[in-house]
Design a protein around this nucleic acid. Structure first.
Lengths: 234, 234
DNA sequence: CCAAAAGTGTTCTCGATACACCCATGT
DNA sequence: ACATGGGTGTATCGAGAACACTTTTGG
Protein backbone atom coordinates (compact mmCIF):
# COMPACT_ATOMS: atom_id res chain seq x y z
CA UNK A 1 0.00 0.00 0.00
CA UNK A 2 1.28 3.43 -0.87
CA UNK A 3 0.82 5.85 1.95
CA UNK A 4 0.12 9.50 1.46
CA UNK A 5 1.75 11.95 3.77
CA UNK A 6 -0.79 14.19 5.43
CA UNK A 7 -0.10 17.90 5.16
CA UNK A 8 1.57 19.00 8.36
CA UNK A 9 1.70 22.51 9.72
CA UNK A 10 5.12 23.77 8.65
CA UNK A 11 6.72 23.47 12.06
CA UNK A 12 9.76 25.67 11.56
CA UNK A 13 12.07 26.75 8.82
CA UNK A 14 15.07 24.87 10.18
CA UNK A 15 14.12 21.22 9.97
CA UNK A 16 16.29 18.94 11.99
CA UNK A 17 17.48 15.77 10.27
CA UNK A 18 18.94 12.56 11.59
CA UNK A 19 20.79 9.62 10.22
CA UNK A 20 18.62 6.52 10.49
CA UNK A 21 20.70 3.65 11.77
CA UNK A 22 18.96 0.32 11.21
CA UNK A 23 20.44 -2.46 13.31
CA UNK A 24 19.25 -6.06 13.18
CA UNK A 25 19.96 -8.64 15.87
CA UNK A 26 20.23 -11.93 14.01
CA UNK A 27 19.84 -15.01 16.17
CA UNK A 28 20.47 -18.61 15.33
CA UNK A 29 21.02 -21.86 17.14
CA UNK A 30 24.27 -23.77 16.83
CA UNK A 31 25.83 -26.46 18.97
CA UNK A 32 22.95 -26.29 21.40
CA UNK A 33 23.37 -22.61 22.13
CA UNK A 34 21.92 -19.32 20.99
CA UNK A 35 24.21 -17.17 18.88
CA UNK A 36 24.12 -13.63 17.49
CA UNK A 37 25.68 -12.53 14.25
CA UNK A 38 28.21 -9.70 14.56
CA UNK A 39 29.67 -7.56 11.83
CA UNK A 40 33.34 -6.97 11.08
CA UNK A 41 34.86 -4.17 13.12
CA UNK A 42 38.21 -3.16 14.43
CA UNK A 43 38.58 -4.24 18.02
CA UNK A 44 35.51 -5.69 19.64
CA UNK A 45 32.21 -6.83 18.19
CA UNK A 46 29.20 -4.90 17.00
CA UNK A 47 25.80 -5.48 15.51
CA UNK A 48 25.39 -5.11 11.77
CA UNK A 49 24.13 -1.66 10.97
CA UNK A 50 23.24 0.36 7.89
CA UNK A 51 21.93 3.84 7.48
CA UNK A 52 18.66 4.20 5.67
CA UNK A 53 18.78 5.13 2.00
CA UNK A 54 16.41 7.33 0.09
CA UNK A 55 13.21 5.56 -0.99
CA UNK A 56 13.89 2.48 1.10
CA UNK A 57 11.67 1.01 3.78
CA UNK A 58 13.02 0.26 7.23
CA UNK A 59 12.40 -3.43 6.66
CA UNK A 60 14.46 -3.46 3.48
CA UNK A 61 17.24 -1.59 5.20
CA UNK A 62 17.31 -4.27 7.87
CA UNK A 63 17.56 -6.97 5.21
CA UNK A 64 20.26 -5.01 3.46
CA UNK A 65 22.24 -4.89 6.68
CA UNK A 66 22.20 -8.67 6.80
CA UNK A 67 23.20 -9.04 3.18
CA UNK A 68 25.90 -6.39 3.06
CA UNK A 69 27.41 -6.64 6.49
CA UNK A 70 27.02 -10.33 7.19
CA UNK A 71 26.53 -11.97 3.82
CA UNK A 72 23.56 -14.06 4.83
CA UNK A 73 19.93 -14.42 3.95
CA UNK A 74 17.19 -14.04 6.48
CA UNK A 75 14.05 -16.02 7.17
CA UNK A 76 12.27 -13.83 9.65
CA UNK A 77 12.59 -10.16 10.50
CA UNK A 78 10.63 -7.99 12.85
CA UNK A 79 11.03 -4.45 14.09
CA UNK A 80 11.90 -4.09 17.75
CA UNK A 81 12.33 -0.56 18.96
CA UNK A 82 13.61 2.86 18.02
CA UNK A 83 15.57 5.33 20.05
CA UNK A 84 17.36 8.59 19.52
CA UNK A 85 21.04 8.15 20.27
CA UNK A 86 22.26 10.91 22.53
CA UNK A 87 25.74 12.34 22.46
CA UNK A 88 26.37 10.97 19.01
CA UNK A 89 28.82 12.75 16.70
CA UNK A 90 25.89 13.17 14.33
CA UNK A 91 22.20 13.23 15.25
CA UNK A 92 20.97 9.71 14.77
CA UNK A 93 17.98 7.54 15.43
CA UNK A 94 18.59 3.86 15.87
CA UNK A 95 16.01 1.32 14.78
CA UNK A 96 16.55 -2.17 16.12
CA UNK A 97 15.32 -5.33 14.43
CA UNK A 98 14.98 -8.94 15.49
CA UNK A 99 16.03 -11.41 12.82
CA UNK A 100 16.17 -15.17 12.85
CA UNK A 101 18.39 -17.44 10.82
CA UNK A 102 17.78 -21.09 10.23
CA UNK A 103 19.87 -23.51 12.17
CA UNK A 104 21.53 -25.00 9.12
CA UNK A 105 21.91 -22.35 6.43
CA UNK A 106 23.56 -19.63 8.42
CA UNK A 107 27.02 -19.14 6.97
CA UNK A 108 28.22 -15.56 7.08
CA UNK A 109 29.66 -14.66 3.69
CA UNK A 110 31.29 -11.38 4.61
CA UNK A 111 34.80 -11.84 5.95
CA UNK A 112 35.13 -10.68 9.51
CA UNK A 113 31.48 -11.30 10.28
CA UNK A 114 31.10 -13.95 12.98
CA UNK A 115 28.63 -15.67 15.22
CA UNK A 116 28.94 -15.03 18.95
CA UNK A 117 27.39 -16.85 21.87
CA UNK A 118 24.66 -14.64 23.29
CA UNK A 119 25.12 -15.56 26.91
CA UNK A 120 28.84 -14.91 27.08
CA UNK A 121 29.09 -11.96 24.71
CA UNK A 122 30.89 -9.15 26.50
CA UNK A 123 33.11 -7.26 24.08
CA UNK A 124 30.36 -5.11 22.70
CA UNK A 125 29.11 -1.56 23.18
CA UNK A 126 26.57 -0.83 25.90
CA UNK A 127 23.96 0.11 23.37
CA UNK A 128 24.39 -3.06 21.32
CA UNK A 129 24.27 -5.13 24.49
CA UNK A 130 21.01 -3.47 25.45
CA UNK A 131 19.53 -4.12 22.03
CA UNK A 132 20.52 -7.77 22.15
CA UNK A 133 19.04 -8.16 25.62
CA UNK A 134 15.79 -6.68 24.50
CA UNK A 135 15.72 -8.82 21.37
CA UNK A 136 16.16 -11.89 23.54
CA UNK A 137 13.36 -10.84 25.83
CA UNK A 138 11.07 -10.44 22.84
CA UNK A 139 12.14 -13.73 21.31
CA UNK A 140 11.48 -15.54 24.56
CA UNK A 141 8.10 -13.93 25.02
CA UNK A 142 7.07 -14.72 21.47
CA UNK A 143 7.93 -18.37 21.83
CA UNK A 144 4.92 -18.70 24.09
CA UNK A 145 2.22 -17.33 21.87
CA UNK A 146 3.52 -17.36 18.30
CA UNK A 147 5.11 -19.80 15.92
CA UNK A 148 8.35 -17.86 15.78
CA UNK A 149 10.40 -20.86 16.88
CA UNK A 150 9.99 -22.55 13.53
CA UNK A 151 12.18 -19.98 11.87
CA UNK A 152 15.08 -21.29 13.89
CA UNK A 153 14.66 -24.75 12.38
CA UNK A 154 15.11 -26.24 8.91
CA UNK A 155 12.07 -27.25 6.86
CA UNK A 156 11.81 -30.66 8.46
CA UNK A 157 12.56 -31.42 12.05
CA UNK A 158 11.74 -33.83 14.85
CA UNK A 159 9.69 -32.92 17.88
CA UNK A 160 12.81 -33.24 19.96
CA UNK A 161 14.53 -30.70 17.71
CA UNK A 162 11.69 -28.32 18.31
CA UNK A 163 11.70 -28.88 22.03
CA UNK A 164 15.44 -28.24 22.11
CA UNK A 165 14.91 -24.89 20.44
CA UNK A 166 12.47 -23.91 23.14
CA UNK A 167 14.78 -25.10 25.85
CA UNK A 168 17.80 -23.27 24.48
CA UNK A 169 15.98 -20.00 23.98
CA UNK A 170 14.08 -20.10 27.25
CA UNK A 171 17.08 -21.36 29.15
CA UNK A 172 15.24 -24.10 30.96
CA UNK A 173 14.21 -27.70 30.55
CA UNK A 174 10.66 -28.55 29.50
CA UNK A 175 8.66 -31.71 30.07
CA UNK A 176 8.58 -33.85 26.95
CA UNK A 177 5.02 -35.06 27.22
CA UNK A 178 3.55 -31.69 28.09
CA UNK A 179 5.52 -30.07 25.33
CA UNK A 180 4.30 -32.52 22.72
CA UNK A 181 0.73 -32.34 23.85
CA UNK A 182 0.75 -28.58 23.62
CA UNK A 183 2.43 -28.39 20.24
CA UNK A 184 0.22 -31.05 18.76
CA UNK A 185 -2.97 -29.57 20.11
CA UNK A 186 -1.99 -26.26 18.51
CA UNK A 187 -2.43 -28.04 15.19
CA UNK A 188 0.40 -26.30 13.40
CA UNK A 189 2.48 -29.35 12.51
CA UNK A 190 2.17 -31.84 9.72
CA UNK A 191 3.77 -35.22 10.13
CA UNK A 192 5.79 -36.24 7.08
CA UNK A 193 6.36 -39.82 6.09
CA UNK A 194 10.06 -39.45 6.67
CA UNK A 195 12.04 -40.33 9.73
CA UNK A 196 15.59 -39.64 10.76
CA UNK A 197 17.91 -42.27 12.24
CA UNK A 198 21.05 -40.90 13.68
CA UNK A 199 22.24 -43.17 16.40
CA UNK A 200 21.67 -46.46 18.06
CA UNK A 201 18.13 -45.69 18.99
CA UNK A 202 14.69 -45.40 17.59
CA UNK A 203 14.45 -43.01 14.61
CA UNK A 204 12.49 -39.80 14.96
CA UNK A 205 9.48 -38.91 12.89
CA UNK A 206 10.00 -35.67 10.99
CA UNK A 207 7.45 -32.89 10.88
CA UNK A 208 6.84 -29.93 8.69
CA UNK A 209 5.45 -26.59 9.73
CA UNK A 210 1.96 -25.95 8.41
CA UNK A 211 1.48 -22.92 6.21
CA UNK A 212 -0.89 -20.07 6.91
CA UNK A 213 0.08 -19.93 10.55
CA UNK A 214 3.27 -18.11 9.97
CA UNK A 215 3.29 -14.93 12.00
CA UNK A 216 0.02 -15.67 13.76
CA UNK A 217 -0.49 -16.32 17.39
CA UNK A 218 -2.02 -19.65 18.17
CA UNK A 219 -2.92 -18.96 21.75
CA UNK A 220 -5.98 -16.97 22.56
CA UNK A 221 -5.48 -13.86 24.66
CA UNK A 222 -7.16 -13.81 28.02
CA UNK A 223 -9.80 -11.28 27.14
CA UNK A 224 -10.30 -11.35 23.45
CA UNK A 225 -11.64 -8.17 21.92
CA UNK A 226 -14.58 -7.84 19.61
CA UNK A 227 -13.62 -7.12 16.00
CA UNK A 228 -13.02 -3.41 15.44
CA UNK A 229 -16.40 -1.91 14.70
CA UNK A 230 -19.53 -1.38 16.67
CA UNK A 231 -18.97 -1.70 20.40
CA UNK A 232 -20.58 -3.60 23.24
CA UNK A 233 -22.07 -6.62 21.62
CA UNK A 234 -22.24 -9.28 24.32
CA UNK B 1 22.41 5.69 31.60
CA UNK B 2 24.44 7.47 28.96
CA UNK B 3 24.91 5.35 25.90
CA UNK B 4 28.06 5.43 23.89
CA UNK B 5 27.82 5.15 20.15
CA UNK B 6 29.99 2.31 18.86
CA UNK B 7 32.42 3.27 16.14
CA UNK B 8 30.82 2.32 12.84
CA UNK B 9 32.68 1.72 9.59
CA UNK B 10 32.23 5.00 7.71
CA UNK B 11 29.58 3.74 5.34
CA UNK B 12 29.78 6.41 2.65
CA UNK B 13 30.61 10.03 2.30
CA UNK B 14 27.06 11.07 1.44
CA UNK B 15 25.05 10.32 4.54
CA UNK B 16 21.34 10.32 4.01
CA UNK B 17 19.27 12.18 6.60
CA UNK B 18 15.60 12.08 7.45
CA UNK B 19 13.17 14.17 9.38
CA UNK B 20 11.97 12.24 12.41
CA UNK B 21 8.25 12.67 12.75
CA UNK B 22 7.03 11.60 16.20
CA UNK B 23 3.29 11.01 16.30
CA UNK B 24 1.41 10.04 19.45
CA UNK B 25 -2.08 8.53 19.47
CA UNK B 26 -3.68 9.82 22.64
CA UNK B 27 -6.70 7.86 23.81
CA UNK B 28 -9.20 8.70 26.48
CA UNK B 29 -12.66 7.64 27.51
CA UNK B 30 -15.55 10.07 27.49
CA UNK B 31 -19.29 9.52 27.48
CA UNK B 32 -18.84 5.80 27.40
CA UNK B 33 -16.77 5.80 24.24
CA UNK B 34 -13.13 5.74 23.24
CA UNK B 35 -11.80 8.97 21.80
CA UNK B 36 -8.54 10.07 20.12
CA UNK B 37 -7.05 13.52 20.37
CA UNK B 38 -6.50 15.26 17.05
CA UNK B 39 -4.44 18.34 16.34
CA UNK B 40 -5.57 21.52 14.63
CA UNK B 41 -5.34 21.38 10.87
CA UNK B 42 -6.97 22.93 7.87
CA UNK B 43 -9.65 20.62 6.52
CA UNK B 44 -9.82 17.20 8.10
CA UNK B 45 -8.23 15.77 11.21
CA UNK B 46 -4.73 14.58 11.91
CA UNK B 47 -2.68 13.14 14.72
CA UNK B 48 -0.44 15.48 16.67
CA UNK B 49 3.06 15.35 15.29
CA UNK B 50 6.39 16.98 15.95
CA UNK B 51 9.75 16.55 14.38
CA UNK B 52 12.55 15.50 16.63
CA UNK B 53 14.89 18.19 17.91
CA UNK B 54 18.59 17.94 18.53
CA UNK B 55 19.49 16.32 21.84
CA UNK B 56 15.96 15.16 22.54
CA UNK B 57 14.83 11.61 23.15
CA UNK B 58 11.95 10.12 21.18
CA UNK B 59 9.91 9.86 24.36
CA UNK B 60 10.31 13.54 25.14
CA UNK B 61 9.40 14.44 21.58
CA UNK B 62 6.18 12.46 21.98
CA UNK B 63 5.38 14.35 25.17
CA UNK B 64 6.20 17.61 23.51
CA UNK B 65 3.74 16.77 20.74
CA UNK B 66 1.02 16.44 23.35
CA UNK B 67 1.94 19.66 25.10
CA UNK B 68 2.49 21.83 22.03
CA UNK B 69 -0.10 20.50 19.65
CA UNK B 70 -2.84 19.52 22.04
CA UNK B 71 -2.18 21.40 25.23
CA UNK B 72 -2.59 18.45 27.54
CA UNK B 73 -0.56 16.46 29.98
CA UNK B 74 -0.03 12.77 29.64
CA UNK B 75 -0.14 9.93 32.09
CA UNK B 76 1.15 7.06 30.06
CA UNK B 77 3.20 6.91 26.89
CA UNK B 78 4.64 3.99 25.00
CA UNK B 79 6.39 3.61 21.68
CA UNK B 80 4.48 1.72 19.03
CA UNK B 81 6.20 1.41 15.72
CA UNK B 82 8.43 3.19 13.23
CA UNK B 83 8.23 3.33 9.50
CA UNK B 84 9.87 5.17 6.66
CA UNK B 85 7.30 7.25 4.84
CA UNK B 86 7.57 6.72 1.13
CA UNK B 87 6.80 9.35 -1.48
CA UNK B 88 7.12 12.12 1.06
CA UNK B 89 8.20 15.59 -0.06
CA UNK B 90 11.11 15.17 2.29
CA UNK B 91 12.68 11.90 3.48
CA UNK B 92 11.03 11.13 6.77
CA UNK B 93 10.72 8.41 9.33
CA UNK B 94 7.56 8.31 11.37
CA UNK B 95 7.59 7.06 14.93
CA UNK B 96 4.19 6.30 16.40
CA UNK B 97 3.38 6.40 20.10
CA UNK B 98 0.48 5.21 22.21
CA UNK B 99 -0.57 7.68 24.88
CA UNK B 100 -3.34 7.54 27.43
CA UNK B 101 -5.15 10.42 29.06
CA UNK B 102 -7.14 10.17 32.23
CA UNK B 103 -10.88 10.17 31.87
CA UNK B 104 -11.36 13.41 33.79
CA UNK B 105 -8.41 15.71 33.22
CA UNK B 106 -8.27 15.65 29.46
CA UNK B 107 -9.02 19.16 28.29
CA UNK B 108 -7.15 20.14 25.18
CA UNK B 109 -5.65 23.59 25.72
CA UNK B 110 -4.58 24.30 22.15
CA UNK B 111 -7.35 25.85 20.13
CA UNK B 112 -8.39 23.67 17.22
CA UNK B 113 -7.30 20.49 18.94
CA UNK B 114 -10.26 18.20 19.51
CA UNK B 115 -11.27 14.76 20.67
CA UNK B 116 -12.74 12.42 18.07
CA UNK B 117 -14.62 9.18 18.49
CA UNK B 118 -12.30 6.38 17.45
CA UNK B 119 -14.91 4.12 15.92
CA UNK B 120 -16.44 6.71 13.63
CA UNK B 121 -13.35 8.71 12.73
CA UNK B 122 -13.12 8.91 8.95
CA UNK B 123 -11.77 12.29 7.89
CA UNK B 124 -8.17 11.42 8.43
CA UNK B 125 -5.22 10.41 6.28
CA UNK B 126 -4.66 6.74 5.49
CA UNK B 127 -1.44 6.69 7.43
CA UNK B 128 -2.95 8.23 10.54
CA UNK B 129 -5.87 5.81 10.34
CA UNK B 130 -3.44 2.92 10.19
CA UNK B 131 -1.53 4.20 13.18
CA UNK B 132 -4.71 4.60 15.20
CA UNK B 133 -5.87 1.10 14.29
CA UNK B 134 -2.59 -0.34 15.39
CA UNK B 135 -2.61 1.65 18.62
CA UNK B 136 -6.06 0.29 19.38
CA UNK B 137 -4.94 -3.27 18.71
CA UNK B 138 -2.06 -2.80 21.12
CA UNK B 139 -4.22 -1.15 23.75
CA UNK B 140 -6.72 -4.00 23.57
CA UNK B 141 -4.04 -6.63 23.78
CA UNK B 142 -2.39 -4.94 26.73
CA UNK B 143 -5.62 -4.80 28.70
CA UNK B 144 -5.37 -8.54 29.10
CA UNK B 145 -1.93 -8.84 30.61
CA UNK B 146 -0.94 -5.44 31.94
CA UNK B 147 -2.39 -2.78 34.19
CA UNK B 148 -2.60 -0.25 31.39
CA UNK B 149 -6.33 0.28 31.93
CA UNK B 150 -5.72 2.23 35.10
CA UNK B 151 -4.24 5.10 33.18
CA UNK B 152 -7.63 5.70 31.63
CA UNK B 153 -9.16 6.29 35.06
CA UNK B 154 -8.81 8.94 37.76
CA UNK B 155 -6.97 8.14 40.99
CA UNK B 156 -10.03 6.66 42.64
CA UNK B 157 -12.68 4.66 40.87
CA UNK B 158 -15.29 2.02 41.44
CA UNK B 159 -15.03 -1.52 40.14
CA UNK B 160 -17.86 -0.74 37.77
CA UNK B 161 -15.85 2.17 36.40
CA UNK B 162 -12.97 -0.17 35.76
CA UNK B 163 -15.16 -2.77 34.15
CA UNK B 164 -16.67 -0.14 31.90
CA UNK B 165 -13.20 0.82 30.70
CA UNK B 166 -12.54 -2.77 29.73
CA UNK B 167 -15.86 -3.07 28.01
CA UNK B 168 -15.47 0.14 26.05
CA UNK B 169 -11.96 -0.63 24.88
CA UNK B 170 -12.59 -4.27 24.10
CA UNK B 171 -15.93 -3.55 22.53
CA UNK B 172 -17.80 -6.28 24.36
CA UNK B 173 -19.64 -6.89 27.58
CA UNK B 174 -17.95 -8.74 30.42
CA UNK B 175 -19.46 -10.70 33.28
CA UNK B 176 -19.47 -8.67 36.49
CA UNK B 177 -18.64 -11.45 38.88
CA UNK B 178 -15.89 -12.96 36.78
CA UNK B 179 -14.41 -9.55 36.14
CA UNK B 180 -14.27 -8.71 39.83
CA UNK B 181 -12.85 -12.06 40.77
CA UNK B 182 -10.08 -11.70 38.26
CA UNK B 183 -9.17 -8.14 39.16
CA UNK B 184 -9.21 -8.82 42.85
CA UNK B 185 -7.17 -11.99 42.59
CA UNK B 186 -4.56 -9.98 40.66
CA UNK B 187 -4.01 -8.07 43.89
CA UNK B 188 -3.38 -4.72 42.33
CA UNK B 189 -6.20 -2.77 43.94
CA UNK B 190 -6.50 -1.17 47.32
CA UNK B 191 -9.94 -0.46 48.71
CA UNK B 192 -10.23 3.05 50.09
CA UNK B 193 -12.61 3.99 52.87
CA UNK B 194 -14.52 6.24 50.54
CA UNK B 195 -17.62 5.50 48.58
CA UNK B 196 -19.44 7.37 45.88
CA UNK B 197 -23.22 7.87 45.81
CA UNK B 198 -24.56 9.16 42.59
CA UNK B 199 -28.10 8.01 42.15
CA UNK B 200 -30.95 6.30 43.83
CA UNK B 201 -29.03 3.17 44.55
CA UNK B 202 -26.36 1.75 46.74
CA UNK B 203 -23.11 3.75 46.74
CA UNK B 204 -20.00 2.23 45.20
CA UNK B 205 -16.83 1.53 47.10
CA UNK B 206 -13.87 3.37 45.61
CA UNK B 207 -10.53 1.76 44.94
CA UNK B 208 -7.05 3.00 44.34
CA UNK B 209 -4.46 1.45 42.10
CA UNK B 210 -1.58 -0.06 44.03
CA UNK B 211 1.86 1.30 43.31
CA UNK B 212 4.79 -0.74 42.09
CA UNK B 213 2.67 -2.54 39.56
CA UNK B 214 2.61 0.26 37.11
CA UNK B 215 3.86 -0.92 33.78
CA UNK B 216 4.25 -4.53 34.84
CA UNK B 217 2.35 -7.46 33.57
CA UNK B 218 0.46 -9.36 36.19
CA UNK B 219 -0.29 -12.43 34.16
CA UNK B 220 2.38 -15.02 33.70
CA UNK B 221 3.31 -15.92 30.16
CA UNK B 222 2.60 -19.48 29.12
CA UNK B 223 6.17 -20.61 29.11
CA UNK B 224 8.14 -18.42 31.41
CA UNK B 225 11.82 -18.12 30.67
CA UNK B 226 14.66 -18.56 33.07
CA UNK B 227 16.39 -15.32 34.04
CA UNK B 228 19.00 -14.28 31.48
CA UNK B 229 22.16 -16.10 32.41
CA UNK B 230 23.21 -19.70 32.45
CA UNK B 231 20.90 -21.91 30.43
CA UNK B 232 19.07 -25.16 31.01
CA UNK B 233 18.40 -25.22 34.69
CA UNK B 234 15.30 -27.38 35.16
C1' DC C 1 21.35 -57.61 25.64
C1' DC C 2 22.54 -52.97 26.44
C1' DA C 3 22.61 -48.05 25.61
C1' DA C 4 20.05 -44.20 23.88
C1' DA C 5 16.67 -41.35 22.32
C1' DA C 6 11.60 -41.69 20.65
C1' DG C 7 7.23 -41.97 21.99
C1' DT C 8 3.02 -42.22 25.00
C1' DG C 9 -1.44 -41.28 29.57
C1' DT C 10 -3.19 -40.10 33.90
C1' DT C 11 -3.94 -37.23 37.86
C1' DC C 12 -4.24 -32.73 40.03
C1' DT C 13 -4.86 -28.01 40.34
C1' DC C 14 -6.22 -23.69 38.95
C1' DG C 15 -8.13 -20.19 36.18
C1' DA C 16 -11.95 -19.03 32.78
C1' DT C 17 -16.79 -19.27 32.05
C1' DA C 18 -21.73 -19.36 32.73
C1' DC C 19 -25.24 -18.10 35.52
C1' DA C 20 -29.18 -15.37 39.44
C1' DC C 21 -30.11 -13.22 43.43
C1' DC C 22 -29.84 -9.93 47.57
C1' DC C 23 -28.19 -5.11 49.18
C1' DA C 24 -28.27 -0.17 49.92
C1' DT C 25 -29.94 3.93 48.50
C1' DG C 26 -33.08 8.02 46.57
C1' DT C 27 -37.50 9.24 45.24
C1' DA D 1 -42.74 0.37 47.39
C1' DC D 2 -39.99 0.47 43.54
C1' DA D 3 -36.31 1.51 40.52
C1' DT D 4 -31.34 1.50 40.09
C1' DG D 5 -26.88 0.08 40.09
C1' DG D 6 -23.61 -2.30 43.79
C1' DG D 7 -22.25 -6.45 45.38
C1' DT D 8 -21.76 -11.65 46.03
C1' DG D 9 -21.07 -17.75 45.20
C1' DT D 10 -21.23 -22.15 42.86
C1' DA D 11 -20.65 -25.65 39.30
C1' DT D 12 -18.37 -26.94 35.04
C1' DC D 13 -14.66 -27.31 31.93
C1' DG D 14 -10.22 -27.07 29.85
C1' DA D 15 -5.29 -26.05 30.01
C1' DG D 16 -0.88 -26.40 32.46
C1' DA D 17 2.12 -29.12 35.44
C1' DA D 18 3.95 -33.23 37.58
C1' DC D 19 5.29 -37.66 36.85
C1' DA D 20 7.52 -43.17 34.58
C1' DC D 21 7.48 -46.62 31.49
C1' DT D 22 7.54 -48.98 26.77
C1' DT D 23 9.37 -48.89 21.92
C1' DT D 24 12.70 -49.02 18.36
C1' DT D 25 16.96 -49.00 16.78
C1' DG D 26 22.53 -49.73 16.38
C1' DG D 27 26.30 -51.81 18.22
Amino acid sequence: MVLELPSQPASSTTEFHSVIDVRPVLFSIQHGELWVATAPTSGNWQLPSVSLNAAESLDSAALRALRDQLGTEHRYMEQLYSLAVENAPEPSVLIAYLGIAQSGASQLGVSGAAWQRVLTLSEISAIDARIIDYALVRLRAKLGYTTIAFHLLPMMFSLSDLQQVYEIVLGRVLDKRNFRRRIQSADILEATRETRREGSHRPARLYRFRDAHDADSYLTPVWAAAPVGEPLTP
